[in-house]
């Protein structure tokens, strides 16, 4: 059961809906995604940014008084029916696990006491939800990986993580949309360009999408 969120002012032109949950909660994530699709339909909200357990709403205080903005959110929360769960599109992403593509695979195998094929099947069995995009363009924060794959981030981030890298950070799993510095444990990589500014549709994934990783092997899929 999802408890109603707290509504917290964030500066003079934004409100934050903060849900209370201990770490990862699938119910909270689904509620956040369902609410954000409803809020996006309302032009009073300039930006609707979803997180794992929170939702940021930006408004123009010259057009919408902050007190009125808060009132609108309270109404939404009160009238919200928990059953309203969006079914985002399902996106399959081929991943080359391990080897050069997944330099931290051994670390995860050792920590979990699993063989490579078991890690791969645990990681690719689950259907993930895209919870949040950012910190860099195209980085997809996905819902929780299997408990046995839990692993903290590197204490010192890598200077360079290639675009398309698939990693584990604590209970989270995610995809680096761009080459960047990063601290996640990298277990594989996809050839799909998650973010490409020159494409008509620069973004391959959006918050609310469902993601399924499909193990791939070098040489067969890639000519």
């Amino acid at each position: 059961m999802v408890r109603p969120p707290q509504i917290i002012p964030y500066g003079d032109s934004a409100l934050l809906m903060q849900f209370m949950s201990d770490g990862y909660s699938r119910d909270v994530i689904r509620t956040v995604q369902a609410m954000s699709s409803e809020l996006r339909a309302d032009p009073d909200w300039i930006e609707v940014v979803s997180g794992y357990d929170s939702l940021l709403l930006e408004f123009d205080p010259l057009k919408l008084d902050p007190v009125a903005a808060e009132g609108k959110l309270i109404n939404l929360v009160n009238g919200f029916k928990p059953g309203q769960v969006p079914t985002g599109r399902l996106v399959e992403i081929p991943v080359y696990y391990g080897g050069k593509d997944g330099p931290d695979m051994q670390l995860i195998m050792d920590a979990a006491g699993l063989g490579e094929s078991e890690v791969i099947s645990l990681h690719s069995a689950r259907e993930y939800l895209v919870c949040m995009m950012g910190f860099i363009p195209g980085f997809a924060f996905l819902s929780a990986a299997h408990d046995r794959l839990y692993h903290p981030r590197h204490e010192t981030p890598r200077g360079r993580v290639p675009a398309g890298s698939v990693g584990i950070g604590g209970w989270q799993t995610g995809i680096y949309g761009l080459e960047s510095p990063g601290g996640w444990q990298i277990i594989g990589r996809t050839d799909i360009t998650i973010f490409d500014a020159t494409r008509d549709e620069p973004f391959y994934l959006s918050a609310g999408d469902r993601v399924k990783f499909v193990p791939a092997t070098r040489g067969s899929a890639k000519g």
Binding site: G11, A14, V49, G51, S54, L56, M132, F141
Partner: peptide, 29 residues
């Protein structure tokens, strides 16, 4: 848990020396 971040936010990392987010700041922190 990482969440949305706005420019103009003062954040406090574990080393107790704050960071002021500017116009190109990450969208989540």
């Amino acid at each position: 848990t990482s969440g949305p971040l706005l420019p103009g936010t003062l954040q406090v990392p574990a080393d107790s020396q704050p960071v002021l987010a500017m116009t190109d700041a990450h969208c989540t922190g």
